[in-house]
């Protein structure tokens, strides 16, 4: 479904990813975990086309996404929910969700029908449709972002730290919603700082550090792995440095 091979890239000449490899099976939830600065969010940005990798290939469902614009990638059915500030505060909830269909701009009737469908999955967009997005709480914003990502019935949704800054209750809602998206047939690739949350949700887990993969496995394998705790406190087996 999603295959990243030999991806190198970063910002301003500094490579954050070095020969990054990843393989995600269709219909699964895959979670990337790892300490700060490991390059987790950078992986998602290369997939969604925000950051063009210097080297390597990113193949989704047989199509190489490298060099494609973010708009083409969205159209192809790969949508990223950004880490924070994903909504447009000046637009209403409904307008925000509808913007998820910007690249298609289908008939109003079809979009309205889709909106009602999504309101079943994410009740907030039904209840608060005409409210300004700027006035929502963090958890509610996430739901609106999820709904927006689902507008065009994507194949893949990329979630960048969906629980960041959320209270435990909202995390629970995120948990359920991610499951629901997955059950609707969407392949999920997520990055999560909250390791236990990620592990509880994911089918497969990729642990990365300093721009490369250090462990892969099923969630339960990773959870029991003896190196996990150390990795998060910087006590990992020595990996190659990023710079100098």
């Amino acid at each position: 479904m999603i295959t990243l091979a030999g991806v190198c890239g970063g910002y301003g000449g500094l490579d954050i990813l070095s020969a990054f490899e990843l393989n995600v099976e269709p219909g699964t939830i895959n979670c990337i975990i790892g300490p700060n600065g490991a390059g987790k969010s950078t992986v998602l940005k290369t997939v969604s086309g925000i950051l063009r990798p210097r080297l390597g290939s990113i193949v989704v469902n047989g199509l190489d996404l490298v060099g494609k614009s973010p708009a083409e990638i969205v159209k192809f059915g790969v949508v990223q929910v950004p880490q924070r500030h994903g909504l447009f505060a000046g637009l209403t909830v409904r307008q925000n969700v509808m913007m998820g269909a910007y690249v298609a701009r289908a008939s109003k009737k079809r979009l309205d029908a889709r909106y009602d469908e999504l309101a079943g999955m994410f009740p907030i967009i039904g209840k608060r449709a005409s409210h300004r997005a700027g006035g929502l709480s963090g958890g509610q914003r996430r739901m609106v972002e999820f709904a927006r990502a689902m507008m065009l019935e994507p194949q893949v949704v990329l979630l960048d730290e969906p629980t960041l800054g959320l209270d435990p209750l909202s995390r629970g809602v995120i948990y359920e919603s991610t499951r629901a998206m997955n059950e609707a047939g969407v392949t999920v690739l997520m990055v999560e700082q909250n390791v236990r949350f990620g592990l509880s949700l994911a089918d497969t887990v990729t642990v990365m550090s300093a721009g490369r993969v250090v462990l892969t496995g099923t969630a339960s394998e990773i959870e029991r792995h003896p190196d996990l705790m150390g990795l998060f406190f910087g006590l990992a087996p020595e990996t190659d440095q990023v710079a100098e």
Partner: peptide, 23 residues
């Protein structure tokens, strides 16, 4: 309009706009 919403999106949040395909 779509265009108007795209303008609002791009001015408030350029990166967020790119992620939904607004350049």
């Amino acid at each position: 309009t779509w265009l108007g919403h795209a303008i609002t999106a791009a001015s408030e949040n350029p990166e967020g706009a790119r992620l939904i395909g607004v350049e």
